[in-house]
Amino acid sequence: MSNDFEPKIAAFLCTWCSYAAADLAGSSRIQYPPNIRVVRVPCTGRMDPFLLIKAFNMGADGILVSGCHPGDCHYLDGNLYARRKFVMLNELMQFAGVKKERLNFTWCSASEGKRFADVVNKAVKRVKSVGPWQGFDGKGFQSKEGELISEEL
């Protein structure tokens, strides 16, 4: 079962670095798994932790947040503010019992297309290792046809 499982990962990428890295990975024809659903954000500093909690609420198996390396932010210090938020969110989610494999935070610069592909590979591997996310109530997520969404993929 866990081998067939294809997770859905909500990926929040900063438009200046990681989104460009994803673009570069594409134009360099580097393969990476199609499990991520990319949301483009202006800066990781804009990332409200609520968005990440909401992603789990709505059935994402895992999350991936990637921005510019510290010091390289297009807005100078957006990712430095973000870093504290992520550390706090990570601690909170793990404390509440969400496995740490579902929470992926990293940095990718615009020139690191190869690294971006590696990051996605790694994130998918991590999420696969803990299986489908069953929601905070443990009941799983139903699609309109009444099937489990995570099995539908």
Partner: peptide, 17 residues
Amino acid sequence: TLLAEYDVHDSEKGFME
């Protein structure tokens, strides 16, 4: 407040790699 500030050498506990 904690999240209204940052330090360049902040911890990256729980980040990938």
